[in-house]
């Protein structure tokens, strides 16, 4: 994934898209007030300077799908583990809720289910059958919309062809108006995301921690 901070407008479409795609339950005002809201992707905002010379920075942060993910070795049950494709997968059924992985994740992108999720009927009809629901006591997080990856692959397989670059679109990427989010195969040097990851504007978040994230952030530019 690549995130172009120069074109991200902070609109939050990705946040809602992720909720809609991944059956993330809303927790309600009272729970949100005590830090139980779950946003697999969040748009961080940072103020810089003071009035009137003030600037604001937006930065969408989702699971960085680290190559050396600190959340993986600490998980006692392999609920958090690495797939052969290099994704950091989360097996909800295998999670016993130690929350250790969330502590170890430097990006704070893992969210714990404090209660069984509930939907006021018939809001449950909005649920995506391709994504499992998480019961109380498990950890959940951005999966890079693994169900969409799988779906696109199955489609390509059925049509007996290779996956096209850009064919897989996670929900957040799909929704983003300025196309600030780009998803693709980093193993393919020709893919758009690979090209962006080689940009001179590119960097990864908290590089010095050594997590080797697979999300590249392209710096915002300034010009007057």
């Amino acid at each position: 994934m690549a995130v172009d901070l120069d074109s991200c407008t902070g609109c939050g479409a990705c946040v809602t898209a992720c909720h809609a795609e991944n059956n993330i339950s809303t927790v309600g005002a009272e729970q949100a007030a005590i830090g139980r809201a779950k946003h697999w992707i969040r748009v961080e905002r940072y103020w810089e300077g003071d009035f009137p010379d003030v600037r604001l920075k937006f930065r969408p942060v989702m699971c960085q799908q680290c190559d050396a993910a600190p959340c993986e070795p600490v998980c006692p049950t392999y609920a958090s583990h690495h797939t052969e494709e290099g994704l950091n997968a989360q097996v909800y059924n295998r999670c016993i809720g130690t929350r250790y992985c969330a502590n170890a994740c430097p990006y704070n992108v893992r969210f714990f289910d404090f209660f069984n999720p509930s939907w006021d009927k018939p809001l449950h009809l909005q649920l995506n059958p391709d994504v499992s629901l998480r019961e109380v006591g498990v950890m959940e997080k951005c999966t890079f919309c693994v169900q969409r990856i799988k779906s696109a692959k199955t489609q390509a397989q059925a049509e007996d062809r290779e996956l096209k670059d850009g064919e897989i679109q996670p929900a957040c990427v799909q929704s983003c108006p300025p196309k600030a989010l780009v998803f693709g195969d980093l193993n393919d040097p020709e893919s758009q995301v690979s090209r962006l990851s080689r940009s001179t504007r590119g960097s990864t978040l908290l590089e010095d921690i050594g997590t080797r994230p697979k999300v590249n952030y392209l710096a915002r530019q300034t010009q007057l």
Partner: peptide, 25 residues
């Protein structure tokens, strides 16, 4: 634990799924 009833998954016991605890944890 979020799901204390599954705490036994921390223990290495023979399971037909070959699921062991993660000894790196």
């Amino acid at each position: 634990l979020g799901r204390p009833w599954l705490a036994f998954w921390l223990a290495p016991y023979p399971s037909e799924r070959l699921l062991w605890p993660n000894f790196r944890s």
